[in-house]
């Protein structure tokens, strides 16, 4: 069965331009990755003396750069930026669920940690100091 593009798809997506934009995005993605790695090495070498807030800020900066990379991949390499507004919205709006998804679950994780380390939890905070004396089923 032969599949053909239907007549109503005008396909005026601006595909006929040169490869300049593709290579530009390649260099942007490479540069962003190198910045991410630089921040990663910064954490590796200087992380110890930075304190909790400094480490968290650096990690959030790396996450922001990752989102920027994702934007370039989706918008240019996957040509979503060239599609019409309806198409962009039908893909992007459902993904907004991730915002609450991330906040809710990481919050939950943090709350678990708090319970582990207080008397409200079933376990005292010995995890930081020494291995728990109870026998765990971690096989050798």
């Amino acid at each position: 069965m032969e599949h053909t593009l239907t007549a109503e798809n005008t396909h005026s997506h601006g595909h006929n331009e040169g490869t300049g934009r593709i290579w530009k995005v390649f260099w942007i993605l490479s540069a962003l990755t190198i910045i991410e790695l630089a921040l990663g090495y910064f954490l590796y070498f200087k992380g110890e003396g930075m304190g909790h807030a400094g480490i968290l800020t650096t990690k959030l900066a790396i996450a922001a750069l990752t989102l920027l990379k994702a934007y370039y991949i989706v918008s240019v390499f996957m040509h979503l930026g060239d599609e019409n507004r309806n198409m962009i919205m039908t893909i992007c709006v459902p993904l907004v669920l991730f915002v609450w998804f991330i906040i809710a679950f990481l919050w939950d994780g943090g709350s678990w940690k708090e319970m582990r380390n207080t008397n409200a939890g079933s376990k005292p905070s010995i995890e930081n100091v020494q291995p728990a004396p109870v026998k765990h089923d971690s096989k050798p």
Partner: peptide
């Protein structure tokens, strides 16, 4: 969403432990 769920689950467990 599948990958997102996996990664967020990983993040939740990682946030919930001390080390």
């Amino acid at each position: 969403f599948t990958f997102g769920a996996f990664l967020i689950s990983y993040g939740t467990i990682r946030f919930s432990v001390n080390t």
